[in-house]
């Protein structure tokens, strides 16, 4: 069925974390990545034959290394994201 998908809508990901712009930045990165790697056109919601809905569930930043003066030196950023890709013609979940 994926061969029949020609276009994809990717609305701005919802973000329950309050980091400013995180959902938007991730959505823009996904747009670019789709355009770089896949044959699907990224189009606005109404006209697409498939839709990728995403939600940032959490963003966690931890210090995992410090300088000898106890200043943060190495930070780890983890993102938890849920996505659902649906064929809008059949309502079938593709991924």
């Amino acid at each position: 069925h994926r061969e029949q998908v020609r276009s994809i809508a990717v609305p701005v990901f919802a973000c329950s974390d309050d980091r400013p712009g995180l959902g938007l930045r991730l959505t823009e990165a996904v747009h670019k990545e789709i355009q770089r790697r896949l044959p699907y056109r990224v189009v606005p919601g109404g006209s697409a034959d498939s839709r990728l809905i995403g939600r940032v569930l959490g963003a966690y930043k931890d210090v995992i290394g410090e300088t000898r003066n106890d200043d943060p030196r190495t930070l780890q950023l983890q993102l938890a994201v849920e996505v659902t890709w649906t064929d809008m013609r059949t309502q079938k979940v593709l991924a």
Binding site: R25, A29, V30
Partner: peptide, 22 residues
């Protein structure tokens, strides 16, 4: 910089998401 590092994490997550669409 911090901003560049977090953008790298975002770009990596975007690649993982698009892996699902292949």
């Amino acid at each position: 910089s911090m901003a560049t590092a977090s953008q790298q994490v975002i770009d990596r997550m975007a690649r993982q998401i698009v892996d699902l669409l292949e």
